[in-house]
Design a binder for these strands. Structure first.
Lengths: 234, 234
DNA sequence: TTGGGCACTGTCAGATCTGACAGGTTGGGC
DNA sequence: GCCCAACCTGTCAGATCTGACAGTGCCCAA
C-alpha cells in the first residue's frame, strides 16, 4: 500500500510524460481515486494533463469553465492540500458554478482533493484527485494520507518538469547527439571525429536542429533545447 | 503562525542561499526549533547548510561522524518526514553511535525531525530540524505539523536549487549580462549595440566568462553557467 | 600611492560557424 | 514500386568567434 515507495523508483526511469502519468494513475487507483488532473502554470502558459473523460475536458474548455470554476481561482491562495468541499463551504456558489459542479458530479467527480505546488518565479501547479469510491470515507482518508499525497504530488511535479512536453520540438537522434556534444564545448570537427562522420555532417545536423528550434545560433539552440527539456543541461 | 504563507513569498525574492537560509531559520524559530541542517547529495557530491554551532560541525566532520551517524544512512530508505527517536527505536546503537548522540544532546540536539526529499536521477536532500524547546511536546507537534513541515522543506529545496552555491564561479555583472544575450542567440556585434559598447568589449567579457567557467566555447560557457545556476536558462 | 579588479577599446591572423549551392544511401509505410 | 524521413557528404563565400598583441580610465582597499 505504500504508494510513494512504489512511485518514486519507477518515476526515475520514466522516459516520457505519458509513462509518468500512467505511474501516477496506478498509485492513485490503489488509494481509491479514479480521476486526476494536473495543471501547470508556467510563464503565463497553462498545460493540462488529466484522465478525465475527453468529452468532459473538451466540454469544460469549450465553455471557458476554467475562468469561472469555483476551484481554479482559489488554488493560488492555498499552500497545502485541501478538500474541495471544505473550500466550497466558505464560498457561496453562483448559479453557473453550481451547474459546473452538478455536471461534474454526474461523472463521479463530486468531491476531491487539490494539492497546490508553488515554484520560484510565480510558476505553480496543482494536482487534483477525485472520483473516490466511498465519498463518506474521503475526509478520513484525506486526514490520514495528507502528507503522503502531498509528497506524491511533489514527486510527480518534480519529475514531470524534467521530461519534455508533447509540444516540444521533435529532434532526431543525431541532432540530439550533436547538440549534447556542442554543450560540452566540442567543435564540429571534433564531434565528427567522436561520432565517426564528417565535419560537414555534424554541421548539417546542428543546422537542422537550429531550424527546428527556431534558433539563429548554436547557443540559442542549446538554450531552447534545455528549456524544452529535450536535452538535460548536465 | 502560518509559516508557509510567510516563507513562500519572501523565498521568491531571495537573492542568494544565505538569504533563503535566514528565511527558513526564522520560520523554524517560530515553530520552536532552534537548529536545522540541510544536506544535498547531487551527482556524488555533498553540500551542507546548517546553523549548528561551527565547533560541532567541524568536530563532527573531523571525526568522519557522517559515515557512522545512525541517521545519515537511513535517510535514503525513508520517503516521508520522521522523528529521529522513532527511527532509533528500531535500531540498536553501537557504542560510538551512542556517543555521537550523547555529544549532540549536550548541545540541545537530542531529538528532531528528518525530512527527506528525492529527486530524479538519484539526487536527494534531507532537511533535519531539532533543538525543540519542549521535548515532550515534539511528537504532538510532529503529528500535527507534518504536512506543513514537509511543504516547507520542499519549498526550501526547490528554491535553493535555483540559487548559485557559494562555490559557484563569480562572474561580473557585465559577464552575466553578455552571457544572457548570447543565450538568446545574439551575436557579439548585436550585443554591443544592445548594451552600448563595442563588439570588441563584448568579446572581451565573454572571453573572460569562458575562462572563469573553464570553457573552450561560448556554448560550453552557457551550459556551465546554467549548471551552476549563475544564469537562469529562460 | 600603489596595486588590483572591473569596464572599456583597438588590430589582426586563423579557426569556426552559417547558409547557400548540389548531391547519394537506407529503410519503412502506402 | 514510390515516397519520405533520416542519415550522410561535398564545396564555397561571408559572417562570426577565438586568442593573441597592446592599451585607457575608474574606483577602492591596503
Amino acid at each position: 500500500m505504500d504508494v510513494l515507495a512504489t512511485f518514486l523508483p519507477s518515476a526515475r526511469s520514466a522516459q516520457n510524460r505519458q509513462q509518468l502519468c500512467d505511474l501516477l494513475e496506478r498509485q492513485l487507483n490503489k488509494l481509491g481515486f479514479n480521476y486526476w488532473a494536473y495543471v501547470e502554470h508556467s510563464q503565463g502558459t497553462q498545460n493540462l494533463l488529466t484522465n478525465y473523460p475527453a468529452e468532459w475536458v473538451s466540454y469544460y474548455v469549450s465553455r471557458d469553465y476554467e475562468k469561472i470554476d469555483p476551484l481554479t481561482d482559489k488554488e493560488l491562495d492555498h499552500l497545502l492540500p485541501y478538500l474541495w468541499s471544505d473550500l466550497l463551504k466558505t464560498y457561496p456558489l453562483t448559479r453557473t458554478q453550481q451547474q459546473i459542479f452538478d455536471e461534474a458530479s454526474s461523472l463521479g467527480i463530486s468531491d476531491g482533493i487539490a494539492i497546490p505546488i508553488h515554484e520560484p518565479g510565480g510558476d505553480y501547479a496543482c494536482l487534483t484527485i477525485s472520483g473516490f469510491a466511498d465519498m463518506r470515507e474521503l475526509p478520513r482518508v484525506f486526514a490520514s494520507e495528507k502528507t503522503e499525497l502531498y509528497a506524491l504530488a511533489t514527486a510527480f511535479h518534480i519529475h514531470i518538469r524534467q521530461l519534455p512536453s508533447q509540444c516540444a520540438v521533435a529532434l532526431t537522434q543525431r541532432e540530439r547527439e550533436c547538440l549534447k556534444w556542442v554543450a560540452q564545448g566540442k567543435t564540429s570537427w571534433r564531434i565528427g571525429e567522436l561520432i565517426n562522420v564528417s565535419e560537414r555532417t555534424v554541421n548539417f545536423h546542428i543546422t537542422n536542429a537550429m531550424k527546428k528550434l527556431g534558433a539563429k545560433t548554436r547557443q540559442q539552440a542549446l538554450t531552447n533545447a534545455v528549456a524544452q527539456k529535450i536535452i538535460t543541461s548536465l
